[in-house]
Each structure stands twice: as structure tokens, then as C-alpha cells.
């Protein structure tokens, strides 16, 4: 597989190294000449000292025959432009972008970036899993981001307490999937009755979060987006 990596920071460097070790053909675009030379000295002549957000640089890197273009610079705007050019100008099959500001994720998705990697959101998720908060936690994106896996922490005040899953009027597009009680994960059945302390795993559409919060957590909770 031929992969173009744009951005020679830590992520781009290790990504390129790993891909080469896995036997893939890789070219890395890094606009800072000194950094490009440094990487080239370490991993070989697979580095072009060019700005990957310029079409001519992508062309020189062989975007016309690339299987994947992955934009991992520290700049969301650059990453979006790179993926847009790769997709629409060079017809690259798959584009992957690093998104630093989680608020930009929906824009990237809307503009057709195939895969979005958000280190910020991943770390946020990890922190939230370790700290008991009475909130909806985003666990993972499914199916390219239209669906997500959400964890709801139920308290004694949650409207779902004492009710069975069959009794709950789940929002359109949300499905109860599993629950974790006393550290043990179990499938949700129609007769499953929820208790305070349960963690309920839901598969739902991203735009259903507020309605889901009302059903499982209660309206008093902060409804700000995750």
C-alpha cells in the first residue's frame, strides 16, 4: 500500500517509521527543511521537504497513485485542506486527518474526510472514564462517525432507575446495548431493571445526545456537548 504522510512531527515520524517497518511504501512531506533532513537521516530517503498543503507538493509526492493520504500536522486547517485536495483533486481512496480541536470534527466529517483522529477527544474520554461523572461519555465513533458508542452513568436520581429497558422511551436512533453493574458487563434485555451506579452502554446517533441525556440522566444535568 502506498501512503502519503503529511507532517513530520512526532506523530508523522513514528507513523512513517511503523508503516515502513510493516512493509508499506511511504513518503513523508515535511515543510521545515531542517526537520525533513533530520528525519531523512534517521529513516531514509522517504522525505520530501515540501509543504503538503500545496497541490504541487502532493502531486510531487505521487498523490495520483496514493492509496491513503494522512494529514497529521499540528494545524487543523492544513489537515483539512490536505485531505480535501487529496480526495477531490487526486481522487485518493482514503483520507485520514488528525483533528486537534474537537469542535472541528463535524466540519471534517461534513467535508468528506474518511477517518478523523482526535487525540484531544481520546484523552478526554480516558479522563472521563477514570473520574466518576454523572454524564454521558463518548466512548467511540462507529461507522465513520455517524453513530457513536456512549456510556451513561446512572445515579439514584436518574429517571431510568427502577424502570425496565422495555419501559424506557428511548430516543429515535438510540439503542440500549449493555450495562455494567458491579464491574460486570451484561446484555440489556427487555426485563433488565436499572439501578443507581449502573453504567449503561448505548449505541446512538450523535444528534440524539440531548434526548438520551433526558431519558437516562435527567434534565438537571449539564447539557453541554461532549
Amino acid at each position: 500500500m502506498f501512503v502519503i504522510v503529511v507532517g513530520g512531527g512526532k506523530v508523522g515520524y513514528y507513523l512513517t517509521k511503523e508503516l515502513i517497518e510493516a512493509g508499506h511504501e511511504v513518503v513523508l512531506l515535511e515543510k521545515t527543511r531542517a526537520r525533513a533532513v533530520q528525519i531523512s537521516d534517521e529513516i531514509g530517503s522517504v522525505v520530501l521537504a515540501r509543504d503538503g498543503s500545496e497541490g504541487s507538493a502532493l502531486a510531487e509526492a505521487g498523490a495520483n497513485r496514493a492509496d491513503i493520504v494522512t494529514a497529521v500536522t499540528g494545524d487543523d486547517e492544513d489537515n483539512l485542506v490536505i485531505c480535501q485536495m487529496a480526495k477531490h483533486h487526486f481522487s485518493v481512496k482514503r483520507t485520514i486527518a488528525r483533528v486537534n480541536n474537537p469542535k472541528n470534527e463535524s466540519l471534517f466529517r461534513h467535508l468528506g474526510v474518511d477517518e478523523i483522529i482526535s487525540p484531544t477527544r481520546t484523552i478526554l474520554g480516558a479522563i472521563e472514564q477514570d473520574i466518576p461523572v454523572h454524564e454521558l461519555l463518548h466512548l467511540a465513533d462507529l461507522g465513520g462517525g455517524d453513530l457513536e458508542l456512549i456510556e451513561a452513568h446512572l445515579t439514584d436520581e436518574s429517571p431510568a432507575i427502577g424502570r425496565t429497558s422495555a419501559d424506557l422511551a428511548m430516543p429515535e436512533g438510540c439503542t440500549l446495548f449493555a450495562y455494567i453493574r458491579d464491574g460486570k458487563a451484561q446484555s440489556v434485555r427487555a426485563e433488565t431493571q436499572f439501578r443507581g451506579g449502573d453504567k449503561v452502554i448505548v449505541i446512538g446517533r450523535r444528534d440524539c445526545e440531548d434526548a438520551l441525556r433526558g431519558t437516562l440522566i435527567g434534565e438537571d444535568e449539564d447539557t453541554s456537548s461532549l
Binding site: 502506498f2 511504501e25 513518503v27 520530501l48 502531486a59 510531487e60 509526492a61 505521487g62 495520483n64 497513485r65
Partner: peptide, 10 residues
């Protein structure tokens, strides 16, 4: 050595 640019496979 014939240098092949990245637009072509090696």
C-alpha cells in the same frame, strides 16, 4: 542510478 519520482512506483 535512475531516479524515479514518487508519481511512479519504483
Amino acid at each position: 542510478v535512475v531516479e524515479i519520482d514518487w508519481t511512479l512506483p519504483l
